[in-house]
Simulated assay, not measured.
Amino acid sequence: MNKEEIIAVQNVKFRYSNDGDWALNEVSFPVYKGEWLAIVGHNGSGKSTLAKILNGLLMHESGSVIVEGIELNNDTIWDIRKRVGMVFQNPDNQFVGTTVKDDVAFGLENNGIPREDMIGRIEDSIERVRMTDFLNHEPHRLSGGQKQRVAIAGVLALQPAVMILDEATSMLDPLGRKEVIETVRNLQQQLGQMSVISITHDLEEVTQADRVIVMNRGQKYAEGTPEEIFELGDELVSLGLDLPFTVKLSQLLKEKGVKLSKSHLKQRDLVNELWTLYSKM
């Protein structure tokens, strides 16, 4: 069955000054409905610039970005933003309401959503991110993970076709990162058709993706499943990226003579294979 393309990025070029280097240089890729796409790269690779272009916060110099059949330009930018929501690195920069409920309502008011619809959307989105008990709390007094869940609720209430996480977990501790990623993954399973684009340098986060794009110096360096990307091994390290702990542990075990079938991305898969191997001894 053919995958349904929701975003088409074709030959996109962008630079921050007319005589500067290309921050993005002839970048092309699709985004499919319902998938989790991770875009990774070192600082300066172009991944965050790409996120801002997909949401219309920056306008590309050449090439095209088409979202649900609408080409991104100055005339369609607000139509695009209704379809592509973004959760930023620092949730404090997104908060405008004095309470969680007010903050989620803000985007809906800006988009002219009728009050009857707003009430239902606010309650639904906050419930989906498990923050119902904090409806009347001040967002700035929440934990890091809770703040990001509120930011996600604010985007979710707008019912976008695509949610972009722009380094949305980079300021969180490991528990907060896990909390946010699990929240978005659960939302995706509940909603079915929402696409997620995760802009990140955290390769542990990448293991959750369906597909991965590696950026390097403004260009697409590699594309594939997480398994295919992590097979690049030392190539990723040479690009300034690290490998997930379970991949590095798998490689070390194989170097020590443990006959693993592959380098595992997930801890439970590695544990299960080790259990299978040694339970037979």
Rank of each mutant, 00 (worst) to 15 (best):
G257E: 01
I213K: 03
I39F: 01
G192E: 04
K262F: 02
R185T: 12
G112Q: 09
G224F: 10
S198W: 11
G224I: 06
N18S: 13
N11R: 14
I229T: 02
F134Y: 15
N186T: 12
S17P: 03
Q193W: 06
P114M: 00
D117M: 14
R128Y: 13
G34S: 11
E179S: 11
G233E: 11
V87Y: 00
M131Y: 08
E35D: 11
R149G: 07
G145S: 10
S17E: 14
H60E: 13
I213C: 06
F106K: 03
E179D: 15
G144L: 03
L24G: 00
T276P: 00
L203K: 02
L274D: 07
A222Q: 10
T49K: 09
H42S: 12
A222W: 06
H201A: 10
V212P: 05
N272M: 12
I53V: 08
N90S: 11
A38L: 01
E235F: 02
L270C: 03
L175P: 04
P91E: 05
D242Q: 14
E235W: 05
S198A: 11
L37N: 04
F230M: 10
S143H: 08
N93V: 13
N90L: 00
V104W: 01
K13C: 15
A168T: 07
N216H: 15
G41R: 02
L260D: 01
N18G: 12
V100R: 00
E138P: 15
T169W: 06
L24A: 06
Q189R: 15
L249Q: 06
V96T: 12
L260W: 02
L274K: 09
I7N: 03
G56M: 00
F134R: 12
S279T: 10
E167M: 08
E167N: 05
K256A: 14
G154K: 04
G120N: 12
L72N: 10
S143N: 08
Q190E: 15
K259D: 14
G120D: 14
L203M: 15
E109L: 14
I181Y: 07
I113R: 05
L142H: 03
I113H: 10
L277K: 01
A151V: 09
L24H: 10
K220D: 03
E179N: 12
E71H: 01
S62W: 00
I70N: 09
L241A: 02
Y32N: 08
T207A: 13
L260T: 07
L108A: 09
H264E: 08
V196N: 04
